[in-house]
Design a protein around this nucleic acid. Structure first.
Lengths: 205, 205
DNA sequence: GGCGTCCCCCAATATTATTCGGGTTGCGGC
DNA sequence: GCCGCAACCCGAATAATATTGGGGGACGCC
């Protein structure tokens, strides 16, 4: 290998940065050229110097990691992989859709992290076993809500009363109740007070 | 220093484990004797071999880190410090109350982690700047709920109806409504549907 | 077209929640 | 003791919400 791959680390945990630096320090084919703890600074960095691979945490203090991804991906010849602590299924789907080339959990072994980098740079898509398992558990809940039901769920989550929702949607209050009853049925809960909670569990919000 | 301090790491992020191993490997006075990623295995470990210092993550996959702390602290001559990713104020207070000797954020620099270990072993209590700042922001708003209000809030959070709550507490439904109105007033929300949400924000649950 | 299905809507009615006026208890201070 | 105060409780009237039953429109399909 004639030249090393330049790696940029984006993670607010200093200890994680340190661990990654140590890890890649032991590998000849990689070189860490920077480590950032804020999402807002990433774009400037990748435009100021060549970066081949970005290792991005989804959980940053200032910006949602997913937004950083959206901002930098595709702008130049650069591969982005996600290294995430908690596993939020819909964020992972979004990341892949946006063009992330690999997803690894911080709970995965170091071997998996390296494997993800190698695979991503080779043009493959890599999802670690830990993440894959989590994705498997969440196989599409077959709860399909109509647009009306979705809208009402949305307002419900804001804590609005039926009357307010009725006013907003320009329908009669009993109609709101009707849709809420449908939500209760589809979400399989007994009380209205549990609907929002359940919807959050299912990532319907 | 005649002997090294034995450190046990408890953190589900392998990369963090690795970073800590690397960090303490560069310090003569410390030695990492183990790294666990499950809370359930901690107790067995500390009883099987001498451990001077436990570095504990609060966010573990199986058990709440705070419970692990409660289980192991005081059982023997052992110091526990908390190394946490997200900063949940009430958990931090609980941890200190339970006997944790230091709190450090994963976002803190490595120097702070080492400082926390040194201070904790010296008998001091150490709270990192990052954590201290977060604690400062949250200066408890003085929302004091009566025991009745607390009980009703609890059932409310379970999604029960007024009638059910009335039955459980053996009081009349209108009385439940009365208490709920008090909760609305004290929590400063306009709708019942926001009470639980607000209570969670204020860590009243 | 005719049929089935799904989503949407509403009025009348039943159920639940809230407000209001009023009462009890317990507790610290004058 | 007596006052004020706060927390607690209730019944009856009122307001809000849920359910039921019925109907309309859009779509796909034979």
């Amino acid at each position: 290998m004639v030249s090393k791959h330049n790696i940029l680390i984006v993670d607010d945990h200093r200890i994680t940065q340190s661990g990654l630096r140590f890890l890649f320090g032991s590998l000849d084919r990689y070189m860490v050229v920077g480590a950032l703890d804020r999402g807002a600074t990433v774009n400037a960095f990748v435009q100021s110097q060549p970066v081949d691979l970005v290792i991005l945490d989804l959980n940053l203090p200032d910006v949602r990691g997913i937004n950083v991804l959206a901002e930098i991906v595709g702008s130049r010849d650069m591969t982005v992989i996600i290294l995430t602590g908690e596993t939020h299924v819909n964020e992972i789907h979004s990341a892949l859709k946006l063009g992330a080339r690999a997803i690894v959990s911080k709970s995965d072994s170091l071997d998996h992290i390296v494997a993800a980098c190698d695979a991503a740079l080779a043009g493959e898509i890599y999802v670690s076993p830990h993440i894959g398992e989590a994705l498997g558990k969440f196989q599409q809940p077959p709860v399909a809500l109509s647009s009306r039901q979705m809208a009402i769920l949305h307002y419900l989550a804001q804590g609005e009363t039926n009357k307010e929702i009725a006013y907003r949607l320009a329908i009669a209050p009993p109609t709101v109740s009707f849709h809420i009853a449908e939500l209760r049925r589809k979400l399989d809960v007994s009380h209205n007070r549990k609907i929002v909670e359940r919807a959050n569990e299912l990532n319907l919000l």
